[in-house]
Computed example of a mutant assay.
Amino acid sequence: MATRESGRLKDGSSKRILDEAARRRRARKALEALEQDNFHDDPHANLVMSKKAPKFDESLDGSRNKDRKRRTRSTEYFKQRFRKNFPILLEEEQSLYPDGPNYLTVQSPASKLPERKLCAVCGFPAPYTCIPCGSRYCCTKCLSTHEDTRCLKYTA
């Protein structure tokens, strides 16, 4: 009768284990990639609607209601139309409060509590650590997701 072995232990010898400096480099690269993918200015913000576009009647009988109320724009419209990216917000805050505390100058003392260890996949408390890359995970389902999509896959 053959004994059952763990597939993880068998593959463990072929996986690369990173030291702390390599893990920090990998985390920095991941953050830089996220910043690259982050919000950019709307490419369609400067488009102007054509005046030649057809106007359709809104009523079913074909007659226009001349005394209808003017449509007001919601706050969501202006939030989308005039949204600002993070560097612009930082620059505005710096110009508004050059002497006072702002995002770049605020300081707080170090926490007296230990650092929270959260799952890299779902965000729940994570008691386990991935051996090759050092990321945290909370269960085997998150471990398999991590190995399939995140663990040393997209970095050199």
Rank of each mutant, 00 (worst) to 15 (best):
K51N: 11
R136M: 09
F86Y: 12
S14K: 11
S144L: 09
P125A: 04
C119P: 00
P101L: 15
P43M: 02
E92D: 13
K15W: 02
Y97A: 04
I131H: 07
F78M: 06
M49R: 13
V121S: 01
T145I: 12
L118F: 02
D67L: 06
P132T: 01
E91Q: 12
R28V: 10
Y137T: 00
A110C: 07
K79F: 03
G100S: 14
F78G: 03
L89I: 13
G134W: 00
S135E: 13
L60P: 00
P54N: 08
D61N: 10
F86I: 09
L47R: 09
P132N: 01
I17M: 09
C142F: 01
A45R: 11
A53F: 08
F56V: 11
N65L: 13
T72M: 12
N85K: 13
T105H: 05
R25V: 04
E92V: 08
Y137V: 00
E20K: 11
P109W: 05
A110F: 08
L113E: 14
R68Y: 03
S95K: 15
R83W: 04
A22Q: 12
S95Q: 15
T72G: 10
L47C: 05
E115W: 05
V48M: 06
K51L: 12
D37V: 07
Q36S: 11
A30Q: 10
A33D: 12
P43V: 01
K15N: 05
A110K: 14
K69N: 07
G123M: 02
K141Q: 13
D11Y: 05
Q107F: 05
S59N: 15
M49A: 14
Y137W: 04
A22G: 01
L118N: 04
E76Y: 08
D11R: 14
F39A: 15
K55R: 14
H44L: 15
C139H: 01
R28Y: 04
K141I: 14
N65V: 11
P109T: 11
